[in-house]
């Protein structure tokens, strides 16, 4: 035994150390939920031009009262029907001559919106409306816009709008991003999100 072997390091406690760290990270982990509906608020009231005039037929009134009941154009509606109603309104294309909408597939009811550029959805809620109902309504309205944009994206560029948006954010996407951006803005302009939110009503006004 002239040459002694190097003593082996005991790795038994390594597992303990690793477990300790593991438990620490397990406890501190919160899988973050930073997903949400992005909105842009209108500028402060004093900066809004007062002279913007909206025709009654270009306005789609959505109201949620304090009992979380949904009213569309003053008549009650179920949440599941809201998306279709909003789509029908936006896509109506009832305008004539220069206000005609060439890509709309709606029924062209002269009593409903002229074209998507003119169509405004007005969302009114009461102070007692619950936040979850409000979000549900917002979500349905956004979905109406997204579905219309998807349709146009598919028609013009063979790719749904939501997929284009996803590709734009994807760093591994191989396509031309400036072109993609241009297409996205183009589709956004075809169906601009015009969602007006009035000051919430006091409950006694309803």
């Amino acid at each position: 035994m002239a040459r002694r072997l190097a003593p082996e390091v005991n790795a038994g406690s390594m597992a303990d150390i690793a477990f300790l760290l593991l438990i620490f990270f397990l406890v501190t982990t919160t899988i973050e939920t930073d997903y949400g509906i992005s909105r842009k608020l209108p500028p402060p009231p004093e900066e809004i031009q007062k002279d913007t005039f909206i025709k009654e037929k270009n306005l789609f009134r959505v109201e949620v009262n304090q009992q979380n009941e949904l009213f569309v154009e003053k008549s009650p509606m179920e949440l599941k029907d809201l998306k279709e109603a909003a789509k029908a309104f936006l896509d109506n294309g009832g305008g004539v001559k220069e206000e005609k909408c060439f890509y709309c597939k709606g029924v062209a009811n002269p009593k409903s919106s002229d074209n998507p550029q003119k169509a405004v959805i007005s969302l009114i809620n009461s102070r007692e409306t619950s936040y979850e109902m409000y979000i549900a309504v917002q979500n349905e309205l956004v979905k109406a816009y997204t579905e219309l944009r998807d349709r146009e994206g598919l028609r013009l560029h063979g790719e749904p709008y939501s997929k284009m948006k996803k590709n734009l954010k994807d760093v591994n996407h191989s396509g031309d991003k400036t072109l993609l951006k241009k297409r996205i803005t183009e589709i956004q302009q075809m169906y601009p999100e015009k969602l007006s939110e009035a000051e919430p009503l006091k409950s006694n006004n309803l």
């Binding site: 939920t33 930073d34 997903y35 949400g36 509906i37 992005s38 909105r39 842009k40 608020l41 209108p42 500028p43 402060p44 009231p45 809620n125 009461s126 102070r127 007692e128 409306t129 619950s130 936040y131 979850e132 409000y134 979000i135 917002q138 000051e199 919430p200």
Partner: peptide, 29 residues
């Protein structure tokens, strides 16, 4: 989610007044 919109409306009003216009209603999917 159980909050009344009154509070949310107040927050939005304050944010508008300081020009913090980009908001995100953070939700679960």
């Amino acid at each position: 989610k159980k909050t009344n919109m009154g509070v949310v409306g107040d927050i939005k009003k304050e944010l508008r007044e300081v020009q913090a216009l980009k908001i995100n209603y953070t939700t679960r999917i």
